[in-house]
Write a protein that binds this DNA or RNA. Structure first.
Lengths: 173, 173
DNA sequence: GATAATTGTTATGGACCATATCAAATATCG
DNA sequence: CGATATTTGATATGGTCCATAACAATTATC
């Protein structure tokens, strides 16, 4: 399905003073037919996902949190005392890739690794005070600037319907 | 939001003979609380998208077509006579990244680049006979094995509602 | 107590995305 | 016309994310 993150600069153009156009008669299309593409679940899903992530990043620009980082903070807050493997795996992150991510969050003093006394192999994850504060601000931003936009676009009822359908796909597809 | 492509092997475990469990009394959770995560649009969207792509790849295993490749074939078929820039940009693919993709499809004799006589800079893209045949088979597979699954899961009406909402997000978010 | 399994980690490779740059061809405009 | 700018496909390159193998330290298993 493709769909990169690139901005579509060409979509802003006049789109008529383009290529083939000698007089004013033979108006060449210039806009391609999407055809069955717009009916492809994966295609539409991916495009929507990119747009949502893009908007998320804009909303979180001041806090410098990516969707992945936000999800980690959320999960650590909700499940204090868990180790890296547990947090990572429920987010679908592989342990090796989670290391650098935690290094980042820890270097920003948003969360901390604590050697477990029960099992000295594992690192218990906790939010720092700053991490809690940032997460609180992040939640507010997401709710007011990001998720609120869905209500404006679809309406409260449809928004819930959409989330339910997506969850169903995520779990049962 | 995270959500990698990794299989969730741990979701198949008994999930009870795990860590803390001395007798049979203090059943420790072992399953983390997702909390507000399951209400995050981006999180659910991404998880759904990964599942859909994963299923798409399985359905197309015999044809060895990725979602991106499928979308290119679809678009070239619907818009014959267009050049690389036009096809790539409407799919959100950057021209540099489109080169290797076309190299692949062309090496498999699915599509061909033809030097335009009007503008000798550009390459007109066309499906080969084999490309058309493969695309026909691909469409059938997608329709019967992939998209049909959405109907089984959501029902025809909901499926259309979902696509409409996703399209709206993709275009207006 | 020897062996197996787990945890965090490093190293590494692949896929995808983005930018700068280039030569060839074309468009633009003095 | 001819100099300059633009466009097209392409290469090179770097970044991010995803996936696997391997390792040391620690713990579990038998």
């Amino acid at each position: 399905m493709t769909v990169s993150k690139t901005a579509e600069k060409s979509s802003e153009k006049p789109a008529d003073m383009a290529k083939g156009r000698k007089d004013a008669a033979e108006a060449q299309p210039e806009a391609l037919q999407l055809g069955e593409l717009s009916e492809q679940l994966g295609y539409v899903l991916k495009r929507a996902q990119l747009k949502v992530f893009e908007n998320f990043l804009r909303c979180m620009a001041t806090l410098q949190l990516t969707p992945a980082q936000f999800s980690v903070l959320l999960l650590v807050e909700k499940n204090p005392g868990r180790n890296q493997t547990e947090i990572a795996s429920t987010l679908g992150i592989l342990r090796p890739n989670f290391v650098a991510m935690l290094d980042n969050l820890e270097s920003r003093d948003l969360c901390a690794r604590i050697r477990s006394t029960n099992d000295r192999r594992s690192h218990i994850l906790v939010l720092t005070d700053k991490g809690k504060a940032v997460l609180t601000r992040a939640k507010k931003l997401v709710a007011t600037k990001h998720e609120a936009r869905l209500n404006d676009l679809l309406g409260q009822a449809n928004r819930e319907t959409l989330l339910a359908m997506l969850a169903k796909i995520a779990n049962e597809f």
